[in-house]
Design a protein around this nucleic acid. Structure first.
Length: 472
RNA sequence: GCCAGGGUAGCUCAAUGGCGGAGCACCACAUUCAUAACGUGGCGGUUGUGGGUUCGAUCCCCACCCCUGGUACCA
């Protein structure tokens, strides 16, 4: 049995999850469930990037200590996953000193051994508001950062460790061009390649304790510095499966088959991450799947606009599967998509209530009236489903399944089973049952709860049941 | 500014150098096994703007406008 290791991005947990996190969790879970049905041994990992400075700032604002805040917020992400029926096999926390810390330090030491980590005095313009350095070109005409106009930047000089990213430029081009590390979709691959070809600069991989506010993983052999959060957070993909603490487990699962991420963090995953692994002499992940963003009622989500959409109330009101359906079926995987409650209800009524739910109800009733029993299951993928899943076109895959629903509805109207009787009727109803079973099987990766309900209803003596999706 | 992606029916999206497609929404008809559901038919377009190449451009080329992401030590 072959293994399949897939990850979501590791959200930083300075705030509660929003609908975009739900999208990514659902996509990754759907891929994972699909591969489980292909008889692979699957591990789905998520986690929490808890060592980011923003977490320290958020904790200060909330008047909590940092660990308490990250624990609280990380639980919100796990809770969301649970409510959405996401099966995370591992949820790796960045503040986990038992597993993650030794793992991060091991990775650092491997890179250091390759001679790729060196100390350098860095001086630049530092924005106290952002707690970050900026290059002159990034600032506005007044020499201020865009986040904090009116705030003067300070010239700060500090000694940090740097990673020799520049050394890996040619190798990175080669592995990405050849798809040894495949970036999907193609236009994201092109974007990454043109970025790399412009020339890579080494990047800082540590912060002074002072700047890190004594939060995060300590640099090996230098207690005055903390490991920069990206170097550390990316490694959660490894620390969660044993790297640095269970070699056998690590050997079994690494490398990742797919990292699922949002477009905003492509550089870290497509450039920094493979370079770090090359330096450490570790195998590269095979695929990077980059999804886009969700707008809400046509607008970008933002804290200042106050329109950040929390998926939890939606799930509580409508259930996990309707939200899973909307996010998978109604968004284009490689384009920004919009979420609005109106469109959500439209898709719910048109596709779930009138389409799937109604078909299941009408066939169940016909079967109940004629004492039909199902003894076998129909477990086959419908045409093109595997193809679309291979391309991560969840919307196309679902549209193929919905064609089965339309065909079945049409067939029932043509057959007019209510005018038939005896063997002829029985044979026709058995055909409907097979169709419903096949639809349910195909729905398993996408709408697990619904698929299970239908499969249960259509095995043994078939009875009418409450509507799967009451109209709203 | 620079790099990349996008702009097609009211909405969400397909497609192709050769009469512009689907689903949803809307309207009408038909129908009862079903959740006022299903089915059939209809309405619906100067393919962002302006040029160019071509017998023919939504598609190829040029310029421009709008949206989105990135633009390196915030994630």
């Amino acid at each position: 049995m072959s293994k399949f290791y897939i990850t979501t991005a590791i959200p930083y947990v300075n705030a509660k999850p929003h609908i975009g996190h739900a999208l990514e969790f659902i996509q990754a879970d759907t891929i994972a469930r699909f591969h489980r049905l292909l008889d692979k041994q699957v591990l789905l990992l998520s986690g929490a990037d808890e060592n980011a400075l923003k977490n320290v700032q958020a904790a200060e604002e909330a008047g909590l200590d940092t660990q308490t805040l990250v624990d609280q917020n990380a639980r919100l992400f796990e809770n969301l996953a649970q409510k959405l029926n996401i099966q995370f096999d591992v949820f790796q926390k960045g503040s986990d000193q038992k597993h993650h810390y030794p793992s991060a330090q091991k990775l650092w030491q491997l890179c250091a051994k390759s001679g790729d980590i060196y100390k350098k005095s860095y001086s630049g313009l530092y924005c106290v508001g952002c707690e970050t350095f900026y290059a002159k070109e990034e600032l506005n005409e007044n020499g201020e950062c865009f986040e904090h106009p009116g705030k003067k930047l300070e010239e700060v000089s500090e000694e940090n460790y740097f990673f020799k990213l520049s050394k890996y430029q040619d190798q990175l081009i080669q592995i990405i061009e050849s798809d040894e590390y495949q970036i999907v979709p193609q236009f994201r691959k092109n974007e990454v390649l043109s970025f790399i070809k412009k020339g890579l600069q080494d990047f800082s991989v540590s912060r002074t304790n002072e700047r890190a506010k004594n939060w995060g993983v300590t640099v090996p052999n230098d207690p005055t510095q903390r490991i920069y959060v990206w170097f550390d957070a990316l490694n959660i993909y490894q620390s969660g499966i044993g790297f640095g603490w269970d070699d056998k487990k690590y050997q079994k699962w690494w490398p990742a088959d797919i990292h699922v991420i949002g477009k905003g963090i492509i550089r870290f995953h497509a450039v920094y991450w493979p370079a770090i692994l090359l330096s450490a002499g570790l195998p590269l992940p095979k695929k990077l799947l980059v999804h886009e963003y969700i707008t809400v009622e046509g607008q970008k989500m933002s804290k200042t606009l106050g329109n950040v959409l929390d998926p939890i109330p939606l799930v509580e009101k409508y259930g996990a599967d309707p939200l899973r359906y909307y996010l998978l079926a109604k968004l284009s995987p490689f384009q920004d998509g919009d979420f609005s409650e109106e469109k959500f209800k439209e898709s719910y009524n048109a596709d779930l209530a009138n389409g799937l739910g109604n078909l299941v109800a009408r066939v169940a009733k016909l079967c109940e009236q004629n004492n039909i029993e199902a003894t076998t299951r129909s477990n086959v993928w419908c045409a093109d489903l595997e193809k679309y899943m291979g391309e991560f076109k969840f919307n196309e895959a679902l549209s193929v399944i919905w064609q089965l629903i339309t065909e079945a509805d049409k067939k029932i109207n043509q057959d007019k089973p209510w005018e038939l009787s005896g063997q002829e009727l029985k044979k026709i109803l058995e055909d409907y049952v097979k169709r419903i079973q096949a639809i349910a099987y195909n729905l398993r990766p996408f709408l697990p709860e619904t698929a299970q309900k239908i499969e249960k209803q259509f095995l043994g003596a078939i009875k009418s049941a409450l509507p799967l999706f009451p109209r709203i």
